[in-house]
Computed example of a mutant assay.
Amino acid sequence: MCKVCGCNQAEVAIDSIEQHVHHHTDMQAAPNANDSAARLIEIEQSILSKNDEFAEQNRNYLSHKGIFSLNLISSPGSGKTTLLTEIIKRLQEQHHIYVIEGDQQTALDAARIRETGVKATQINTGKGCHLDAHMVGHAFEHLGMHKGAFLFIENVGNLICPAGFDLGEAHKVVILSVTEGEDKPLKYPEIFHAADVMIINKIDLLPYLNFNLQQCCEYAKQINPEIEIIELSATSGENIDQLCHWLVAEKNAFSIAVLSE
């Protein structure tokens, strides 16, 4: 199903069929001395349609329960889990919080989250490089979520494939650390275009690095003029309260919208 890396065998099969049909069509359509025109047959198929069906089911379920969900996407090592634990520490007294952890292997991140006292479930994707909506929907069964809760979905570390998969979340949040290049928004535009928020993490390291913070923000705005940018450090705690204020405000707006439906 992954349209970029071919990590799902169904996707490989679809590609193979399409390639074969296009090749066969080209052979038929190739003009010869007796042909006045070549025929073009275009075949289109949404390889994400099944995922979108599951995503809509997830969205309806979450909306019905008033659960505000965020899909956290980044490269490996950006500090997603550390940031998530700091968010939980600040919000868990006032809010029910649940976490879905996505990794290819191990349950280490889910164990770190559980140490904060909140309920977390782990999804191991094996060779898969992203979560999909069916996996996430199945994980709901193990969480037993309260109405009006936060749900954080920490995706597999990857800036490419998760961008194309709707999980039924309210917002995609892309996390970039200053130990990476400021040109990431230009190199991986799809996720920065899809995200509502870009978090720039590890700003406490800026004095020791060659990272151009202003340029990074400009690149992100170039790709997505509406993207909101929050600069913070999960380690020092700088500006994490700003992020938490945004989260609570968005959750309140989501709750009002759900009630008005």
Rank of each mutant, 00 (worst) to 15 (best):
H193V: 00
Y188R: 08
E261S: 08
N155V: 12
S16L: 14
E169N: 10
N32Y: 13
N58A: 03
A220L: 06
V258D: 10
D103P: 10
I230K: 08
K127S: 13
G157P: 12
F211E: 11
I73A: 10
A55T: 03
D204V: 11
E154S: 11
L243A: 03
N158K: 01
K50I: 00
G77V: 08
A139C: 09
A110N: 10
L176N: 11
C161A: 09
Y61G: 06
M27N: 06
Q45N: 10
A257I: 00
E182P: 11
D241I: 03
G157I: 08
G77Y: 14
C244D: 12
E86V: 01
F68M: 06
S69H: 10
S75G: 07
D166L: 00
L167Y: 02
G6S: 07
K3C: 10
G144C: 06
H134F: 03
S78E: 12
N71Q: 09
Q105N: 13
K50M: 01
I240N: 01
Q94L: 09
V118P: 03
V136I: 06
M198P: 04
A249P: 03
L84C: 09
I47N: 11
H171I: 06
A234K: 07
V174D: 03
E169P: 07
T179D: 15
S260I: 10
N58G: 04
P207A: 00
F150C: 00
I43V: 15
F54L: 04
N155C: 13
G66K: 13
T106I: 04
S177G: 12
P225A: 05
F165H: 14
V118G: 07
F150P: 02
E115Y: 06
A120L: 08
A110W: 12
D35W: 15
L232R: 12
A163C: 08
I160H: 13
I229S: 05
S69Y: 04
A55D: 02
K65V: 00
G102N: 03
E141S: 11
A13W: 04
K80V: 02
C2F: 00
H20R: 14
E250P: 02
R114Y: 07
P162R: 12
K251V: 10
